[in-house]
Amino acid sequence: MPSDLQQEAARKAQGAEAAVRMEGVEKYYDAFHALKHIDLEVKSGERIVICGPSGSGKSTLIRCINCLEEIQSGRILVYGRDLTSGSSAVEAIRREVGMVFQQFNLFPHMTVLENCTLAPRRVRGVSREEAEAAARRYLERVRIPEQAEKYPAQLSGGQQQRVAIARALCMKPRIMLFDEPTSALDPEMVQEVLDTMIDLAEGGMTMLCVTHEMGFARKVADRVVFMDEGEIVEIAPPTEFFTRPQHKRTRKFLGQIGIQQQGFSE
């Protein structure tokens, strides 16, 4: 049962259509200018890593894509559909865009299985049996099928975040947004979440990840976006980004997080 968005995408599927297109996006929090004229195009199947110092607007940027944050001007199109065109577009886009949060945000009063089946049942109208079968498949994929009947508080941080990924996947999204998915985890749990994300990337999912995990960026990103003070400073493939950053601000940031570049000359 393909949705409007999927049909629309199928019609234009000649490779030209962007999964996400941001045009001149401006975002303010009162007087604070959080996003300054953002232009960004993400192709279907592309993996984007967004990095930058804290407060640079990277979380705000991805939160605009599913309209958790309102923008003040500019346009955001998701598979050709304009997010700023009204609430029905927002609803339709949210069905196609999954999101994983820094703090997991699992529903604590529901079991893992209930967390995973709520949205498919209520939003997509899937039957309980079907939703549960799908949920178990995705829990299997994130390698925690045995935790289905437990409550989130009974799981480790890494397990909770993998449940959160499974929960988002249960809506069968075409785009996944990750907002610092490993930042709240104990160090020994980071890798299991990254592995899940790598698996997802290898499966062809369109992904936008805000993360400080530069190893992940090197390994899976098609392009790395560097942001600072609400602007996109630089966009480059990872090899180029890490070895030959063009901008001074990028070099400074990479230096601060302990990555040495070649060809660094001032």
Partner: peptide, 25 residues
């Protein structure tokens, strides 16, 4: 607030967000 955000990101409408996520908590 993350609870409401997560429910919103899952495309649940206001009624379902309240009924299944916010009010029970």
């Amino acid at each position: 607030p993350g609870q409401n955000e997560a429910a919103t990101a899952l495309a649940l409408n206001y009624r379902d967000r309240m009924r299944y996520v916010i009010l029970p908590q």
